[in-house]
């Protein structure tokens, strides 16, 4: 009865409206925002610190662990879900990895795959509950967040796992390559970004992620295996949490059962600032890279200008709000 007809204006769009249309693309806004941030850095350079490559290298190193989490988060959010457990799983893996290499003296070749598997299992468990029992992702991953934190404390007996003799795998992961010019962790991040990008844009799998996020019912009726996809998506987020956990343990030279608390929120902030829609179905991992750089540079610029941490946090909050407002104007 009610016509669902949507009329399209038949005349070609004017130059001005076409310009506006380009401005409203998420990646254009994100690049403009990043350019603005870098300009600010060039102006408030902290006695020339911003002109040194080391500053940029450290900014990237500091943000890398968050950004690895954000990779998995991007995929989850594209499927119209959310994963609050990534920070806790990071902590769990940091502890597990430390126990394996410090206490049990496993080689990296066995410890790393074991930890990746454990992380993926945590994610798959969340995904299964979400897919089979139709519980909201928010609730399920909140439960997993608490559970994984508990498990981390249980296996570590609440203590930090470390030894006076730092295992070689830790120092290797925490080292820099190419004439000390880039951190290994940053390279790991780039690898994660590339994996996500290929998965989302070059595989059938990625198309299904977008379809589920855009309209789950339409995807289901088009033969998309929605349950299996959801389990896979959360398993992938768990896998990236494990990668981040290993990196975090290596950077800190220890496995801290408290590690990664509130990291999930930073990861979500990175995804949202990049311009991926929390409603699902729109965005991409390229935007997440831009979001990473924006958050990373804002933080670095504030710290080289000796802005107190309290103010930094307040400013980051404000930036998130602005990012979301800009996003909403587009849709």
């Amino acid at each position: 009865m009610s016509p669902t007809n949507i009329r399209v204006p038949s005349e070609p769009p004017s130059v001005a409206s076409r310009g506006l249309a380009i401005l409203s693309r998420p990646w254009v806004t994100a690049i403009l925002a990043l350019a603005l941030v870098i300009t600010l850095g060039l102006v408030f350079h902290g006695n020339g610190a911003f002109y040194k490559w080391g500053t940029h290298r450290d900014a990237l190193r500091l943000i890398s662990v968050y950004a690895i989490l954000a990779c998995g988060m991007t995929v989850v959010i594209l499927s119209a879900g959310i994963d609050l457990s990534v920070g806790s799983v990071l902590g769990l893996i940091a502890v597990a990895f430390s126990i394996l290499v410090v206490r049990w003296e496993w080689s990296a070749w066995t410890a790393v795959p074991a930890c990746l598997l454990l992380g993926a299992c945590c994610g798959a468990a969340s995904g299964s509950l979400i897919a089979w029992f139709r519980i909201q992702p928010f609730i399920v991953t909140l439960a997993m967040m608490v559970f994984a934190r508990g498990l981390a404390k249980k296996i570590s007996h609440g203590e930090k796992i470390w030894s006076a003799q730092t295992p070689e795998v830790f120092t290797r992961i925490d080292s820099r390559l190419w004439g000390e010019n880039i951190s290994v962790v940053t390279l790991v991040l780039f690898a994660c970004l590339i994996v996500c990008w290929i998965g989302l844009t070059r595989l059938r799998w990625g198309r299904y992620v977008y379809a589920i996020g855009g309209n789950e019912e339409a995807a289901r009726l088009s033969g998309v295996p929605v349950s299996a996809m959801k389990i896979g998506v959360y398993a992938l987020a768990g896998l990236f949490s494990a990668v981040a956990g290993i990196c975090h343990a290596a950077q800190e030279y220890q496995g801290d059962p408290e590690a990664g608390a509130t990291y999930e929120l930073t990861a979500i902030a990175i995804v949202v600032i990049g311009g991926t829609s929390l409603m699902g179905g729109r965005g991409g991992v390229g935007l997440t890279l831009l979001g990473t750089l924006i958050i990373g540079y804002v933080d670095k610029i504030l710290s080289i200008n000796a802005v107190p941490e309290a103010n930094r946090l307040m400013l980051t909050g404000a930036i998130i709000v602005v990012a979301v407002l800009v996003q909403r104007r587009k849709s």
Partner: peptide, 17 residues
């Protein structure tokens, strides 16, 4: 409601199934 993923382009919708 359940026929199209309206946020995606024509190609993605036409080949989804």
């Amino acid at each position: 409601r359940n026929g199209l993923v309206t946020g995606l382009d024509v190609v993605a919708n036409a080949t989804l199934a």
